[in-house]
Simulated assay, not measured.
Amino acid sequence: MSAMSIAGVGVTATSSALSPIALFLQADIVVKSVMIGLLLASIYTWAIILSSGLKMGRTLKASKAFEAEFWKSEDIDKVYDGPGRQDVPSAKLFTAGVGEWRRSVRITPVDREGTRARLATAMSAATSAEIDKLSDRLNILATIGSVAPFVGLFGTVWGIMRSFTDIAASQNTSLGVVAPGIAEALFATAIGLFAAIPAVIAYNRLLHRVGQIENHLHRFGDSLHLTLSRELERVK
């Protein structure tokens, strides 16, 4: 067999040994645990990204639809007893505001300034509650994004330590002996980055989306507050 053929076989064997599956199978239990944990974190990250993204899109669309229906209506009580009962952030804010308004105007004489303050507080609390629901799992993305690289680095350090131990035991420092262990160790870092990068990007993007929805709810709340304040002037 020619030298070129032998070299070709050697390159093929080395490439197979350095494939992702081979690197995982060759790793010891500690590095394997790190890799499996990071892969599970990556899967969970994408589940949160997809579910949260879809939820926020549906939420904003439903809120806009409710607001359009509300502004077209001339009877606040009719909206309160009908669409106002929907499980939509804008509807929840509306229900909180109108509910407080109804309770306040039952007390005579009506304290207009106190009622306005209570309306603002009730709608602000409803907005905060809805925003908390939307951003419930975003902290998990932030945690994975910040911790995953260090977990991967731990796997890398452990794998390199194991490689040096093997080198010392075999008394052989050739590339064929060193490469698989080093590649296996670096593969752990690569998986850590694979889990962390989407988590960080998605966290920032979804946090921005939550901020947009919050601002939208605040604008609706301010407009509703003005409307109820005008209604309050008609109360004797």
Rank of each mutant, 00 (worst) to 15 (best):
E214C: 00
P198C: 07
G181S: 09
A126P: 10
G57M: 08
A22V: 08
G152L: 01
S90F: 13
L153N: 04
A195F: 12
L228R: 03
I6S: 11
R58G: 08
S90A: 15
R103Y: 10
T143C: 02
A65L: 09
T45F: 02
P20L: 07
F66C: 05
D111R: 09
G181A: 07
R118D: 12
G99W: 10
R118E: 14
Y44A: 15
N204K: 05
A17R: 15
G152T: 02
T227M: 11
L134R: 14
K92D: 11
V177I: 15
S2C: 06
L226Y: 14
S52K: 14
A7F: 07
A65M: 07
L217R: 08
E67Q: 13
E214K: 06
G10L: 03
S5L: 15
H208T: 11
D136Y: 14
G192A: 01
A117F: 10
S5R: 14
W46T: 04
G211W: 09
R103N: 14
M56K: 03
P89I: 12
L153M: 12
L153K: 04
F24R: 01
V210Y: 05
L175D: 00
T189W: 02
A199M: 09
N139M: 10
V9K: 09
P83I: 02
P109H: 09
I201S: 07
G37F: 05
Y203W: 11
S2T: 12
A65K: 15
F154R: 00
G10F: 01
V157T: 01
E69S: 14
G114R: 03
V235N: 05
V88N: 10
V30Q: 00
I107V: 15
A169E: 08
I29G: 04
V110D: 06
S174Y: 02
A3N: 07
N215R: 14
L193D: 10
R85K: 14
